[in-house]
């Protein structure tokens, strides 16, 4: 499968370890992710007011790039695209949905972008995790050469992968996609009761103590459930749960720091890919001591 891939800005910087590991892991599964040319930042958050079309221009412009790729034969999945960042996924899928349901919005946005060809409203936005689930976790299992035996993982979903219900890729109240994936990789999966609780998102910019408070709850619940590491698919969750452990430790001296993986890093590891693909050095809390203690490195 050759599919247009939308990275998003953070995957080119702080979330490079998500991008690199995901592209490599997907390739192992036969999914070739082709970066969309001239993509622009999607805006991160889907604008929620009825009359605000301006903020949907950015995601729609990206959908247009996918439409162009579908037309020029550079991919073999017409009018489909894949994302890795949960927030990009949510924003792009929400915008795609709004303009495909609402012809008037589509006409307005198309006429605003008068230098571009018209967007026809057909592109389907997917998250890599859904594509993998639909291929079947058996396929994942087949590729595992270094099972993550003995590693206790607490999947964390956050918001944008699950909510609102019509956008999310799994049951918004009882998601299992992370559990199924990491079990296929051979890990022990523990259930974190705070797996769907918001990490505080953009408040990390203007109120980092609020984010550290939420992060403390999310991480310590995972630890109480027996988790040695948690996972995410979003560079903002990752920043809030990983880098903000500095602030959490300052507020709670007894707090024991724990690694935060991107789901794709664990895939790359289990698929036997090398350090360049796993990019563990990009994580704030170094996961390598834990992995070494489990003989996984």
């Amino acid at each position: 499968m050759k599919i247009p891939y939308y990275p998003g800005c953070s995957l080119k910087t702080t979330g490079k370890n998500l991008e690199v590991s995901a592209i490599a892991a997907a390739k192992t599964l036969g999914i070739e992710m082709v970066e969309i040319p001239k993509w622009n930042c999607c805006g991160t958050v889907f604008s929620l007011t009825e009359d605000d079309l301006m903020h949907h221009v950015a995601p729609v412009r990206n959908l247009l790039r996918v439409q162009e790729m579908s037309g020029n034969g550079s991919v073999d999945t017409p009018n489909k695209m894949v994302t890795l960042c949960s927030m990009c996924f949510n924003t792009m899928k929400s915008a795609a949905g709004r303009v495909s349901r609402n012809a008037e919005d589509l006409v307005k946005i198309n006429s605003f972008m008068n230098l571009e060809e018209d967007y026809k409203g057909k592109v389907q936005v997917l998250h890599l995790l859904e594509i993998i689930r639909d291929m079947g976790f058996d396929k994942v299992k087949e590729k595992v050469s270094r099972p993550l035996n003995g590693l206790s993982v607490a999947p964390y979903y956050g918001c944008m992968l699950l909510r609102p219900a019509d956008i999310g890729i799994d049951d918004p109240e009882d998601p299992t996609i992370g559990k199924d994936l990491f079990e296929a990789l051979g890990a022990d999966v523990v259930d974190n009761p705070y797996k769907k609780v918001c990490c505080g998102a953009f408040h990390t910019v203007n109120d980092k103590s609020l984010v550290a408070d939420l992060g403390y709850e999310i991480l310590t619940r995972a630890q109480k459930a027996g988790g040695e590491a948690i996972t995410t698919s979003c560079p903002l969750c990752a920043f809030n749960l990983d880098n903000r452990q500095k602030e959490i430790s300052a507020a709670h001296p007894e707090f024991k720091q724990m690694p935060v993986f991107y789901f794709s890093q664990l895939m790359a590891l289990a698929f036997g890919l090398g350090e360049e693909e796993c990019m563990f050095e990009g994580n704030y809390v170094d996961p390598r001591p834990l992995l070494k203690s489990k003989n996984l490195l």
Binding site: M54, H55, A58
Partner: peptide, 10 residues
């Protein structure tokens, strides 16, 4: 804050 409106390019 860029909204990708392309006004600057125009």
């Amino acid at each position: 804050r860029c909204v990708a409106c392309n006004t600057c390019t125009k």
